[in-house]
Simulated assay, not measured.
Amino acid sequence: MALNFPNPSRSFDEGRKGVRFVGHDGVFEVPFFIEADALVKASKAARPLDASQDDCLSAFDRLRPAIHDVAREIHGNRRRSSYTLNASDFR
C-alpha cells in the first residue's frame, strides 16, 4: 500500500529543532521528523531559518508537497518504524 498523508497536522519539536508529522501506510501510522536544516535546504532559502517554531512550521507548510514526496521515496526504499529527514535527503 502507498504512503499517504490524510492528516495535515504537524508539530514543532523545540528540543530537536524540527517538525514532526505522520504518514499512513494502510492501517499503520508512520512517524516522521524533519530537521530545521532540511527545511532550509528544501526551501532553497537565501537566509537560514532561526529554527523557531513559526519559521519551521511556515516552511513546512510551504514545502509540504515536496516533503511528502521525499518521505514517500524514503519510506519506499527502506521500511522503518520512524524516519528522520535531513538536509541530505533533499536535492
Rank of each mutant, 00 (worst) to 15 (best):
N77S: 14
L39A: 06
D50S: 02
N7A: 14
N77L: 13
N86K: 07
S58A: 09
I67A: 01
F60K: 02
I74R: 14
R10W: 09
A71S: 06
D55E: 02
R79H: 03
Q53E: 15
I34D: 06
P65F: 01
A38C: 09
S52N: 12
G26H: 10
L49G: 03
G18H: 15
V40M: 08
G23R: 06
N86Q: 07
G23V: 08
S81D: 07
E73C: 04
G23T: 06
P8Q: 11
V22C: 07
F60I: 01
I34H: 05
P31G: 10
C56N: 03
G15M: 11
C56L: 02
F33T: 05
V27W: 13
R78C: 13
L39I: 06
D55H: 00
G76C: 07
V40L: 09
S81T: 09
A38T: 10
N4T: 15
Y83E: 00
V19W: 10
G76T: 09
R20N: 13
A46S: 15
A42N: 02
R62C: 04
K17P: 05
G26F: 11
P48K: 09
G76N: 12
R64S: 03
D55W: 00
F5W: 08
M1I: 13
E29M: 12
A46Q: 14
S43N: 10
D54I: 07
R80K: 08
R91W: 04
A42I: 03
K17E: 14
S11V: 11
S81G: 06
V70H: 02
S9G: 12
L39P: 04
T84I: 12
V27E: 14
F12R: 13
F5C: 10
E35V: 10
V19P: 07
V22I: 12
R79S: 04
G15L: 12
S9T: 14
P8M: 11
K41Q: 04
E73T: 09
L39T: 05
G26M: 10
R64Y: 04
H24A: 15
A71P: 03
H24C: 14
R72T: 06
H24I: 14
V70R: 04
T84C: 09
